[in-house]
Design a protein around this nucleic acid. Sequence first.
DNA 1: TAGATTGTTAATCGATTAACAATC
DNA 2: TAGATTGTTAATCGATTAACAATC
Lengths: 205, 205
Amino acid sequence: MSQEIPEIIIGRLPLYLRALKRLKMTGQGYTSSKELGEVLNLSPAQIRKDLSQFGELGTRGQGYQIKFLINKLHQILNLERTHDMAIVGAGDVGEALAKYKNFIHCGFQVTTIFDNDEEKIGTKMSGIVVQNSAEMTRVIIEKEIEIALLTTPAKSAQEVADQLVKAGIKAILNYAPIELKVPEGVHVEHIDPAVHLQKLSYYLG
Amino acid sequence: MSQEIPEIIIGRLPLYLRALKRLKMTGQGYTSSKELGEVLNLSPAQIRKDLSQFGELGTRGQGYQIKFLINKLHQILNLERTHDMAIVGAGDVGEALAKYKNFIHCGFQVTTIFDNDEEKIGTKMSGIVVQNSAEMTRVIIEKEIEIALLTTPAKSAQEVADQLVKAGIKAILNYAPIELKVPEGVHVEHIDPAVHLQKLSYYLG
DNA sequence: TAGATTGTTAATCGATTAACAATC
DNA sequence: TAGATTGTTAATCGATTAACAATC
């Protein structure tokens, strides 16, 4: 049935989900593409087009039932179960992510932390014992970890990514300031605050 | 001369800059759109098109002089001076950003931290005294802070953004999981790890 | 000169928007 | 029935790519 949905649409689904959860808290049962558009600064047409990729999720004349649509998005985005994640790199960024409270509430949890620094191995970070990176492949497979949060320095990021791919990881959230090479079928998202700031800086001119 | 450059192009310039700095470290003097494309997983044509928006920055037959192009991008992106930033919200995310080491090396520095929690006001976070949010407008103007890192809970984010706008802030890096409404001329970039993870999660299905 | 690579035009591709019949 | 709002088609818009003359 469903043929290849454009990545740009997949990227918007979490925003829809976030907005819907927010609207649900206000107590209302239904919303419309118009209302969602206002909340998200998107056009109603775009929202209808995006959602229609996954079937007829609304009702003409009434709009979208919030509860139903949240459920549907959970299904589509594979959020019906919690995903286990590993942090690779027990530096400041790794620590911040280990402490980050929103994850569990969004369907994710950090279960494992790796580092190659002898000083750090065996110590606890946010309640989790830091393990030796040398054990990474084995542990990832054993614990069925699905997602890696890559927080090593740029220098070693590609090497670590290669190991993660070997361990069967298909999803990497990359905090290292470098573009990673990964084979087809492995997905990488990038977060680099400096890149965002430099973009903002342009508009200060 | 230069008429309205598309935002999508501005967003790629920091990536070019990052890649160029990396190439410079290898010691080579020139690069090409082909090489940059390989490093960044972009097409050479796109890189040439993007750069040509800002004049003839390369030399036919030779490519781009790395030093010159880095300089030029610094000019374009307003990175020839350091930008002062304020963190609003002294929680875990705020703390992580206060500690983040890459900023200064990219042309940014955190000079001020605000919070409205009596317990936190007056304490130090990464060497910076947390100030009362009630003083925010005054302090931002006095210290000529240009960029705000918004790390409050979603609940208060819009209200804080409104105050920031009143204080004359034109650039906000928003870590709160909510879309902000800001007037024309104010620029917002969003960072929400959960949104990236939920996108990745789709591809695990 | 031959090889390399830019800057730029035209062609292609894909995403967004407008419009409206369907239908609650 | 009248009003509202979806799902979908067609039109528009903008971004990417291909191709090549210019030129080092």
